[in-house]
């Protein structure tokens, strides 16, 4: 796995550095501009989690996947390395965001708030969900598949919004409120440490399921 991660870094060094530069500048500006801690962590998690997706799509662009899978590795190994890299980038992004928030003197972001279990849990959930949703899809269908999925999700969202407007229904808001309420009730009932552990367990399960699916689909992908 070490070789696979090293290979991704060497072959995508410039693209990774360019992304990191842009993201760091964006986060620095957000910290300086007194962004809310939630939004700040939210954007950091999203931006850094998609870096490995960029690596996969670049591989696709250069038709390099066939070469990658001809090296002495298994497809399972390739998928495992991509998950480690993705989650690693997500966590590194959060750490960078926290450091920037603390380092920028004019920032209104209080480090103790950013380091609060709630913020960290939200950030970790975001990273996990993004990686778990996007990676199997990208590994199986490539960049075009990813674009199609994003567009399809946008279209679906727009259609739901239009339907809600036309029917004057607030079902979407009620569903969201019900889910948030349920999560809050579970959190209160369990207490914060137990709830955090439950969430972490849930996230681990999500990653495990996503990984199994990704291995299954990638092993069947014909290159």
């Amino acid at each position: 796995m070490r070789e696979l991660i090293w290979r991704d870094f060497v072959l995508n060094r410039n693209a990774i550095l360019a992304n990191l530069l842009v993201f760091t500048a964006f986060l620095g500006y957000a910290a300086w501009d007194e962004a809310s801690p939630g939004a700040y962590i939210f954007f950091a998690a999203i931006m850094f989690s998609v870096v490995p997706i960029m690596i996969v799509t670049r591989e696709e662009k250069f038709k390099a996947m066939r070469l990658g899978c001809s090296l002495p590795v298994t497809r399972r190994g390739v998928v495992r390395a991509r998950y480690v890299l993705s989650l690693g980038f997500g966590v590194a992004g959060i750490l960078l965001a926290l450091s920037l928030g603390a380092a920028i003197s004019s920032s209104s972001l209080d480090v103790s708030t950013l380091l609060g279990p709630r913020e960290l849990l939200i950030a970790l959930t975001l990273v996990t969900l993004i990686v778990s949703l996007l990676l199997p899809f990208t590994l199986r269908f490539g960049a075009m598949g990813l674009i199609i999925m994003m567009v399809a999700l946008q279209v679906l969202g727009s259609v739901l919004l239009i339907v809600a407007q036309i029917t004057r229904s607030s079902a979407d808001k009620r569903v969201a409120a019900a889910v948030a309420g349920a999560v809050r009730s579970v959190a209160v009932a369990l207490g914060e440490p137990a709830f955090s552990l439950l969430v972490l367990g849930g996230l681990a399960l999500v990653v495990a399921v996503s990984y199994v699916v990704a291995v299954h689909v990638f092993e069947r992908r014909e290159l």
């Binding site: 070490r2 290979r7 670049r58 250069f62 090296l71």
Partner: peptide, 17 residues
């Protein structure tokens, strides 16, 4: 199927290990 924007030396560095 090599990455087009990478040098031959770097491609070798990525594959050799």
């Amino acid at each position: 199927g090599f990455h087009q924007d990478v040098t031959l030396a770097d491609t070798k560095r990525a594959i050799a290990p």
